[in-house]
Amino acid sequence: MTAYIIRRILMTIPILIGISIISFGIMQFAPGEPTALDLDPNISPEDREAQLEEMGLNDPIPVQYLRWAGNILQGDLGSSFITNRDVATMITERLPNTLVLMITSTVMTMVVAIPIGIVSAIRQYSKRDYVFTFASFFGVSIPNFWLGLMLIIFLSVQLGWFPVGGVGTLGGEFNLFDRLHHLLLPALVLATADMAQMTRYTRTSMLEVKNQDYVRTARAKGFKEGKVVYKHALRNALMPLITMFGLLLPTFIGGSVVVEQIFTWPGIGQLFLDSTFQRDYPVIMALTMFGAVLVVLGNLIADILYAVVDPRIEY
């Protein structure tokens, strides 16, 4: 097992190098450059050229890449072209906000999707099942930016039940209730699509398991329906979901870009969007690599969990 984990971690190295080369290239080929947003209209073309030269942006792309990679390997993420601040600091400032949002969404997804999926499967073709099925198609289809805006309009603006955005009331002391109050809507919007998707996966998985011979054996042993479902069926049904969960984890990053923008949530999603518009290359690269690591990590965790839950899998 340990050998397997080490092997897997070593395997991530070429993957991350590949991702970094491709994303660096794509970023460079995109039109525009960091100086384009200089607001001073009086800047001369010569000065601008000098600025680019100074940033090293006139060097050939491979040279730029190697310089960037060399810095990264020394633990230096560089500094922002726009604010000149240290990228690592910028990210660590905002990361906790995003993590709180992601973890809350993940917990919400699991807490809602798994029980609903189980009920749907066990009462297949019942009224409840149809209601949940309809709701999950609704949840999958609804774009998160629209849902976010609608919730803000109705629940925040018109009814005034929730704050319009931000992580907490400005100027106030830290207050857990206030934080949760601000967290609920963005986390819900971020979780909606995944909740719907996971509900469907849970249902399918449970349907497959509930007619297995060993479930019948459990019934023949005289166990109550609850024990049959939760002890004998559920654990088997959850196994494929672990993989799904590993794949869902990185989608939160993508989702957070939109959700953080709508709810003015100062997280890395918002940072990602701003830095992309400003062609702030060091920030974009750092965040892209962060996302890549998260994807690789999600898959690794899923594989490891799989071996923990399923005794048939040995690494």
Binding site: Q212, Y214, R216, T217, A220, H232, R235, N236, V309, P311
Partner: peptide, 17 residues
């Protein structure tokens, strides 16, 4: 307890986990 049952499919009648 009073009535027990053995099934046809020994390969799949035991819970794998």
């Amino acid at each position: 307890n009073d009535i027990s049952m053995i099934f046809q499919e020994p390969m799949t009648s035991l819970n794998p986990v």
